[in-house]
Computed example of a mutant assay.
Amino acid sequence: MTDVPIQFFQAAATAIPTLMIAVVVGMKFGEGPAQRLEGKGKVGRIVVLVISVVAIAGIFASEFVALAALIQGGGTLEQAYFVWLGITMAFYFLAHEYLMPVKKVATNFERELLDWMILLLMIASLVSATYVLRALG
């Protein structure tokens, strides 16, 4: 177990709520989550709802892990990976909200392309976490 400096968890404990507030503001002024369900079948609706709930639960859990590491005075590499995942998911939601107006006017191919690009950026962030967190620890 490698200890990760407390500064990482301090930054994460601040960044996660800030990112989620940005997502909520984006949702308030943009298209809401209900519009994403339009045109989807029953299975598609269930999938979107389950993924949304699980992702939000993961983001909140990563905030609690960051706070727990702060209380303990530092954290492990595993805790840092979990917190990084929460930050990445929050960025995913923020990017999704930012691109929603673009997706409204895009063709099906362009929407698929945007979704894949966001997913690839999320995966790249998680892969880069290995190098960044090992350098910290």
Rank of each mutant, 00 (worst) to 15 (best):
E110G: 00
E38F: 11
L67Y: 08
L70D: 01
F82E: 02
M1I: 14
L120G: 10
G41W: 05
N108F: 08
V48Y: 11
V23I: 10
A34G: 05
G58F: 01
L70R: 05
V127P: 04
L70N: 04
L126Q: 05
M117A: 15
E110S: 12
A13G: 12
Y131Q: 13
A55Y: 05
K40C: 09
S62K: 02
V43W: 13
V50E: 03
V24G: 03
L114D: 06
Q72I: 07
V25C: 12
A135V: 12
E112Q: 14
I51R: 06
F8Q: 08
E78H: 11
R36E: 14
G137I: 15
A34S: 13
T88R: 08
W84H: 02
I46F: 10
L19I: 08
L94D: 07
A135R: 15
H96S: 12
D115P: 05
I71F: 06
M89V: 05
I87L: 10
L94H: 00
Y98M: 09
G41H: 02
L94W: 03
R111E: 11
A55P: 03
A106Y: 03
I71C: 08
Y98K: 02
Y131N: 14
T14G: 02
E97F: 06
Q79T: 13
M20P: 03
L133Q: 10
A57K: 02
T2H: 11
R134Y: 15
I21M: 02
F29P: 09
R36P: 07
M117E: 13
V54M: 09
G41T: 06
S62Q: 01
M122Q: 11
A95C: 05
R36I: 08
Q79R: 02
I71N: 06
